[in-house]
Amino acid sequence: MNRVRRTFFTQAAAGVAILSLAPGFRLVELAVGKSDDEPVSPSVRWGMLVDTSKCAQGCTACVEACNEEHGLYGFGRAESDAQWIRKMELRDEQTGKTHSLPMLCQHCADPPCVDVCPTGASFVRDDGIVLVDKHICIGCRYCMLACPYKARSFIHEELNNQRPHAPRGKGTVESCTFCVHRVDKDLTPACVEACSAAGHGALIFGDLNDQRDPVAQKLRDLPSTQVRDDLKLNTAVRYYGI
């Protein structure tokens, strides 16, 4: 019921938008809408800007939101427990300046994990999200060796009580999905939402290819960096302030 109503609203609103604006002008918020039977579009590239000047030391709202959203839970074994997003504390060895920032899958355009995966289970979706197809992952962990960001986790135990929208199980590799199940419903990732709710607003999510999208505008205006830019992986997560 809700679904039908929503689709109606989206389409109606889109119609209004198209009617009311000059050609070539679109309302960004509505343009990203995609119906359920439509494949994701390569014209979109989802990305994130991390404004480290707003990221608070000691705050782990994004991590907790991620764990909650995907039903990640630990077994009290930090070395093998799943970690899709983690807070890193940095201190410049020369100047002493400190930074706090979240580290997660950087959703590279040319990801090493995808290159090395023997079965093609690691792949880049058309809209730039790097995913693991757990149906064909054989659990060789080569992608984990290849990832420069240590963004991937191997599931070391049998799991129970998974969330319906976040299937995950023993013997396969997983990592941040940019909350693909939410993105497909035009929602932002859980970490981004939690960061806003915590009053920091350090994470901005959107379509990097859409010049009218706030994230694209910010990235155009602010100097941002890619982590390990020497590798030329063209990451979709960019950092400001480091």
Binding site: P118, G120, G139, I155
Partner: peptide
């Protein structure tokens, strides 16, 4: 040692030829 040794058949039928492992 694979996480999913039961999926050996997947390793033998699905390939990513960019991977040296494949």
């Amino acid at each position: 040692d694979l996480g999913r040794p039961d999926r050996l058949i997947v390793a033998m039928t699905t390939y990513n030829f960019k991977s040296i492992f494949a």
